[in-house]
Amino acid sequence: MTYEILIAGFGGQGVMSMGMLLTYAGMLEGKYVSWIPSYGPEQRGGTANCAVVISDEEIGSPVVTEPTIAVIMNLPSLDKFEPTVSSGGKIFVNSSLIAKDVSRSDLLITKVPANDIAGELGADRIANMVMLGAVLAETRVVSEESIIESLKAVLPPHRHNLIPLNRDALERGKALVLAKE
């Protein structure tokens, strides 16, 4: 199984770190992984995106041109990447910031009001983790425990107090998907 994941939004939405956590978690699960950021002037304020590949086999191209999973955090990213998603793929849309509907009918669409839920948790910056919780529940690309383990590895010890909040955010995202089912 090979997951080709594209995560896009604007700078500051935690798009890159969402990708890094997935990559790290995949590595912890013994899978082949790669992470590539878009880089350049657009990193600052404009759209930011990264591509993650998680696979049971050695990864050929780490460049993702037809994602099987697309995580869309803002409107410009929806416009830009919706057409690229592989037919039958899964698209996750941050409905807090995107009112527009996904126009394609060959994709599995999950709307996640990530910023609203993050607001309820009292931390708008955690919206990416709410989204990630939904992605995990819907795709099972890696386990939630691997994500928590990755957080422990990438966060400096004095930030480990943030782990319960991150776990709550993942749970809320997950609950949203499970409720839908």
Binding site: M20, S34, W35, I36, P37, I59, P62
Partner: peptide, 10 residues
């Protein structure tokens, strides 16, 4: 190339 320098892999 630019991609290789920017990408993360184990």
């Amino acid at each position: 190339d630019g991609v290789l320098g920017q990408m993360m892999e184990p």
